[in-house]
Write a protein that binds this DNA or RNA. Sequence first.
DNA 1: CTGAAAGCGCTTACAG
DNA 2: CTGAAAGCGCTTACAG
Lengths: 345, 345
Amino acid sequence: MAPPKKPPPPRPTAKKATIRELAVASGASISTVSLVMNGSWERYRITPATAERVRAAARTLGYAPNQNARALRLQRSSLAGMIVPHHRNRFFAGLAESFESHARARGLVPIVVSTQRDPATEREVAATLVMQGVELLVVSGVRDPSDINRLCREKGVRSVNVDLPGPDAFSVVTDNRAGAETLTRHLLRDFTGDGPVLFLGGFDSEYATDLRVEGFLAALDAVGRPRAEARILRCGYHPAAAHAVLDDMLARNDFPRALLVNSITAFEGFATLWRNHGDRIGAPRIACFDWDPFAACLPLPTVMLRQDVEALVGACFDWFGGTSDRTGEIEIVPAQMVLDRIAAP
Amino acid sequence: MAPPKKPPPPRPTAKKATIRELAVASGASISTVSLVMNGSWERYRITPATAERVRAAARTLGYAPNQNARALRLQRSSLAGMIVPHHRNRFFAGLAESFESHARARGLVPIVVSTQRDPATEREVAATLVMQGVELLVVSGVRDPSDINRLCREKGVRSVNVDLPGPDAFSVVTDNRAGAETLTRHLLRDFTGDGPVLFLGGFDSEYATDLRVEGFLAALDAVGRPRAEARILRCGYHPAAAHAVLDDMLARNDFPRALLVNSITAFEGFATLWRNHGDRIGAPRIACFDWDPFAACLPLPTVMLRQDVEALVGACFDWFGGTSDRTGEIEIVPAQMVLDRIAAP
DNA sequence: CTGAAAGCGCTTACAG
DNA sequence: CTGAAAGCGCTTACAG
């Protein structure tokens, strides 16, 4: 918990102007300066001339209020935090950028931190953000949000989960079941191929994966294919793991003609295998529960699902702006489909 | 500059423990508590028993020091900021993650903010980060870093540029010239095709692009192809712009058999065109000054350059940890090549 | 309309 | 070994 001891950084030559210097420079009192800088000077009937004098002095001094002092005094930091596992795919990159723009629109400074899906890092980062006094913490891509949600609640920080729901906070998630079902329907539209239809990736007893499998199976039912045709291989999300599973099927001449890949990282494993053994793999139909512009350019009949990051983050801020607690509630947001530019009707 | 007026957020029920409450709970004085929590209690010869009593109380209270108060008192925030244009490609995503881990290793809280390549946003974000009191600002992917570097200098904040150098701070960049030359040599190894060799993307009079064009031309010289064969089309970085240029060449039956694409975003324009007109485009050799795992999986003879984000960020922190100013100096970091898994020898 | 004053939570020389 | 005290820069009711 104690920060590592470090030598003080080399003294910077320049210094920040304080409100006191600005008061001296503008000939106004400290209170007047504060009032002017905060825009509430009209309420206090300060002369426009005085206000302008203060603002001019602020410009020439390059005055910017010390946010630490302000936060300490106001007990309000103007900081909004977000936890993501990483930035390496479009989903989380999009979540982060959407979060930043929403936060700024509300006058909050966005702080996005990645935690590499490591629970220890997740907890530490959450604790750090709470110490920094964030007013809101959006949690995505962690193993289990409950620890973090509870930590926040104890410290009076509002937290909300995205992507993975939890019982200890309000949560916003993509419609995993319907998304997977629609995706699978597209995958199997007019598909007359033989053999198993593969669902690849994710973990056992994992909220999103379970729902996606449900949707996958429902789509099989809907198009009149027996569930016995379904092969569900929950190999996790790592590219190498997906690669290994598929490589194995290829070696056994058992490569599926249609597959739904349960994340862009698992898709990466497929793409690598296909790049090296395209001749033996041919051109299976492929669907992915995630979207990436390059993945969409592989010359295969592809359909991808794109989560609506804007709507997901929007729902978080709507909740933040509202007054109801909604702990344990889950708001479900529909996804968008990205259909193949060649194969789609 | 004044924050938009907003209603105060719903009052949280829980509250953070303060040092005063911890003092009462542990039966020690405020000073003692502070000393213990900061790890400097041994220097003050506080009894281990007392220290442990304080720590135990801290655990049960869930005490975490208010970083705003600490920062205000110490005039040191423990915050490190980074500006990136966005997180949507591997280069910036990698820079951000590398930055986060280096910052944490030094006991700093990383704050990465994206600015969408908008100069107004860039300035605003930089000003905000300075107000928050960051001890270091790493600037990447902006149009012109000088404004930001100067702002930082005025406020006594140390700033360093990555990717794009500037005269007003220390800068760390990839070896653009050598990278482009090596990339082009790979592109043209044993290449006997006819027609122009294309350099696509970037802007006129842009630091990185100019150097990359130099390297590109040098490689042509080296492999004994006349410079007249070079076609240099600086269409910017937008996928749509690259797409338009290439579409045009395709319409005129003038599509190059070998091309170096000057960024992954421009490559996206190529990939989209190729996806839709692969039959007419065939399989040109392609090189890209950037790397993406999916782009590398297109079934084309491809060579990609991967900037060494770890080394780039490492150099920034080495500078930060050091004492010399180095304003205007440029440190050049070699890039890595990602060779095609099929076509490379 | 303006100024003096208290206090946000913390750190650290200093006096005991 | 511990406590009282000053002060970081700011905001805001309050007295003038």
